[in-house]
Computed example of a mutant assay.
Amino acid sequence: MGIHISIKNRLRLLSASAVLGIAVLAVVTFMANKMSSKALQDLYEDHTLSIVHMQKLESTLQEVRFRVAGVLLEQLPLQGSLNHLKEARAILAEESKAALPVFAQIFVSTESAAEFQALQSNWSKVDELLGKIEKNYVANDNKLLSSVLEEEWPVLHKNVIKHLQALIPVAQKQAEQTYLSNRQSVQRWATIGEIFGLFALISVVLVAYQTIRAITRPITHAQTALVQMAAGELNNPIDAQQQDEIGVMMRDLEALRISLVKVVSNVRHGSESVATASSE
């Protein structure tokens, strides 16, 4: 038993398919944009900022060492280096306060966690050493300043700066992996959107084709039947099996044909009766 759908319901189905397709595409696009925004935010907050913090810490420490060497070589002014050191201590304190908690969350692998633990456990030595350098700047004691640079700074480099430098490429690699993973997620949603969009398009095309076919074919048959009836050919039954508005029209035409057949038959019978009576 076939499924009969009226023209009105076919048009409703066509509209519903189009609306559903648009709605699905809108939802998928929204989800893809949301995931893309979150991915960029996570990449920026968890990785890009971490790399910036680490590079800032490392470059600030290197600048301090460079200026100490410049003062000892009498290439840089003492007062300017002292002012720079005070600014550097403030920058390092601010950057480390913001960065170290984030580092604890992103450096969780065995190797990177060990590097971070070593960095964190020795970080307090940074300000201690910078405090000594500041005192020597104030005392203008190049001998002690030279001792700090030659003996204590290599220890700081080994215990702090080296670990910091080792973590920078790790953070860069993690940022790249996060980017690739998030890009795959966004591409997955885009693929889902394309599939649903294609499905919606095919559904709309099929419903539209069936609707057009359900309208045009019966109308063509009705036109043929009307031409035959106008030519006096009333013996060809009209197919009226379609269960929709067009089917109703075709059944009305079939009823009209049957009525015309009866009228013609009655007229013919009356004519024959008149002819018989006349001959008698």
Rank of each mutant, 00 (worst) to 15 (best):
residue 7 I to E: 06
residue 7 I to Y: 06
residue 8 K to C: 10
residue 10 R to P: 06
residue 16 A to G: 00
residue 18 A to S: 09
residue 18 A to Q: 03
residue 20 L to A: 13
residue 23 A to L: 14
residue 24 V to G: 04
residue 25 L to M: 10
residue 26 A to I: 08
residue 26 A to W: 10
residue 32 A to N: 04
residue 36 S to H: 13
residue 36 S to Y: 09
residue 37 S to Y: 12
residue 41 Q to N: 00
residue 43 L to Q: 03
residue 51 I to K: 04
residue 51 I to P: 02
residue 57 L to T: 07
residue 60 T to H: 07
residue 60 T to C: 00
residue 61 L to N: 08
residue 62 Q to L: 12
residue 63 E to I: 14
residue 63 E to T: 14
residue 64 V to E: 05
residue 65 R to T: 15
residue 65 R to Y: 12
residue 66 F to H: 09
residue 69 A to L: 15
residue 71 V to K: 03
residue 74 E to D: 14
residue 78 L to C: 10
residue 79 Q to C: 05
residue 82 L to A: 10
residue 84 H to K: 05
residue 89 R to L: 06
residue 98 A to T: 11
residue 99 A to Q: 01
residue 99 A to W: 05
residue 101 P to M: 03
residue 105 Q to P: 06
residue 112 S to K: 05
residue 126 V to G: 01
residue 127 D to Y: 01
residue 129 L to C: 02
residue 130 L to V: 05
residue 135 K to A: 14
residue 137 Y to P: 03
residue 138 V to T: 10
residue 142 N to V: 10
residue 146 S to A: 11
residue 148 V to M: 03
residue 149 L to Q: 03
residue 149 L to A: 00
residue 151 E to Q: 00
residue 152 E to N: 02
residue 152 E to V: 02
residue 152 E to I: 05
residue 157 H to N: 12
residue 162 K to S: 15
residue 162 K to I: 09
residue 166 A to I: 01
residue 170 V to P: 01
residue 171 A to Q: 00
residue 171 A to D: 05
residue 173 K to P: 09
residue 175 A to Y: 01
residue 176 E to N: 04
residue 179 Y to W: 07
residue 180 L to G: 02
residue 180 L to I: 07
residue 180 L to D: 10
residue 180 L to E: 10
residue 181 S to N: 14
residue 182 N to K: 00
residue 183 R to M: 13
residue 184 Q to S: 11
residue 185 S to R: 13
residue 185 S to W: 08
residue 185 S to F: 06
residue 186 V to Q: 05
residue 192 I to K: 01
residue 192 I to E: 00
residue 198 L to K: 13
residue 200 A to C: 00
residue 201 L to S: 08
residue 205 V to K: 03
residue 206 L to D: 02
residue 206 L to Q: 01
residue 214 A to I: 06
residue 217 R to D: 12
residue 217 R to M: 05
residue 217 R to E: 05
residue 219 I to H: 02
residue 220 T to V: 09
residue 222 A to C: 07
residue 232 G to H: 03
residue 238 I to F: 06
residue 241 Q to D: 15
residue 241 Q to T: 15
residue 242 Q to H: 07
residue 249 M to W: 08
residue 251 R to A: 11
residue 252 D to V: 09
residue 253 L to F: 01
residue 253 L to M: 11
residue 254 E to V: 08
residue 264 V to I: 11
residue 264 V to D: 14
residue 267 V to Y: 15
residue 268 R to Q: 12
residue 268 R to D: 15
residue 270 G to P: 00
residue 274 V to Y: 14
residue 277 A to M: 11
residue 280 E to A: 14
residue 280 E to R: 15
